[in-house]
């Protein structure tokens, strides 16, 4: 007897023609939910030339992969993506549908849930199944992490949410896992789009986008000038990390807005966050206090950043950062630090 309850779905994310690792993180969440529900875990892939790239999804935990591989889906076009997803959801009726809280996920899902007339919870950091009701329990921070809320979608399906990138590690891939790949054609009416993709301008920053980075070396006003700020780039390069910045540093044009961490910038969850010359205003802490490990360097012993630090150094970042740079010769560190 097949389970009367629908499957758990994840939206795989395709970047530069490849399955992005956030897709595997989602599968780690999805596996836990599907096992608790006794249902199947499916991943949905939309793109062009992606039909032969589904193995990694199965190896990372998917039981089923739905693929819609059409040239019209080569880039993200909100209307075509939405129409294709609406058709898939209406045909297969998933119980739960989760996407990563990336710029794509945070656009796809808020358009989709309007058409499906269901609930959508943004930027969750925890997901579970309520043992009694079997409902999805969605935990999310709000107001800069000052509040955590548990949210449920009791009456409508699918239960939808976006999940903060790096809130869970992917499962170790198992090359022996087998799954079912279902290739769907997109209906012509669904694929028609009013959107035109014109070009992509890649940012020449050190390392990965900060949302994806395992190590972030971040600087604030305490770095005093752009030349000192450049020291952080050197340290980030040597550690294979990326450069982050406080709002003040961005306002002073020492770093681009894409590097801004905090309430009016990005929320990041790296393994290691090194805060240099950042005092730690509430708005900044909101974006980085979920990091695994925080190292803070600041001259002011009363700086709030020390409250969230695992290691704090009361001292001048301009003197300490060069010492750290000297300790790790160029080129060492983890992989993935190259600008992509």
């Amino acid at each position: 007897m097949p389970n009367s309850r629908g499957d758990v779905w994840t939206l795989a994310e395709v970047r530069d023609g490849a399955i992005h690792s956030v897709s595997w993180e989602l599968l780690a969440w999805g596996r836990k939910l599907a096992d608790k529900l006794g249902s199947r875990l499916a991943s949905v892939v939309l793109g062009s030339g992606v039909a032969d790239k589904t193995d990694s999804l199965i190896h990372h935990g998917a039981d089923v992969v739905y693929v819609v591989d059409e040239p019209e889906l080569a880039t993200y076009r909100p209307d075509a993506y939405n129409a294709v997803l609406v058709s898939l959801v209406k045909e297969y009726k998933p119980e739960i549908f989760i996407a990563s809280a990336t710029t794509t996920g945070r656009t796809v899902m808020p358009v989709l849930y309007v058409d499906l007339e269901t609930g959508l919870t943004a930027d969750c950091t925890g997901l579970d199944i309520d043992p009694e009701t079997k409902l999805l329990l969605q935990t999310r921070p709000a107001i800069g992490g000052n509040v955590m809320a548990d949210i449920r979608t009791p009456n409508t399906r699918p239960q939808m949410c976006t999940v903060r990138p790096r809130s869970k590690r992917p499962l170790a891939p198992d090359a022996n896992r087998r799954g079912e790949v279902i290739v769907k054609r997109g209906a012509a009416a669904d694929l028609a789009s009013i959107y035109q993709f014109l070009s992509f301008d890649r940012e020449k920053a050190v390392g990965l986008p900060i949302q994806d980075a395992e190590i972030i070396v971040a600087g604030g006003k305490g770095m005093k000038n752009p030349k000192n700020f450049a020291l952080l780039e050197e340290l980030a390069r040597r550690l294979g990390g990326s450069v982050g910045a406080s709002r003040q540093a961005v306002d002073l044009s020492w770093a681009p807005y894409s590097a801004q961490v905090g309430l009016s910038g990005k929320s990041v969850t790296p393994k290691i966050y090194i805060a240099c010359g950042i005092s730690g205003a509430v708005q900044h802490l909101a974006g980085m206090s979920a990091a695994d490990t925080v190292i803070a360097i600041n001259t002011d012993p009363d700086a709030p950043i020390f409250r969230v630090a695992d290691i704090g150094i009361i001292g001048n970042a301009m003197e300490i950062v060069p010492k750290l740079i000297d300790m790790c010769p160029g080129g060492c560190g983890r992989k993935g630090g190259e600008a992509r």
Binding site: A149, L285, R307, V308, A309
Partner: peptide, 14 residues
């Protein structure tokens, strides 16, 4: 819930 974000880390004086 109102999470506490204090970590009580080790603080050094440079």
């Amino acid at each position: 819930m109102y999470p506490q974000i204090t970590r009580n880390g080790k603080i050094f004086s440079a």
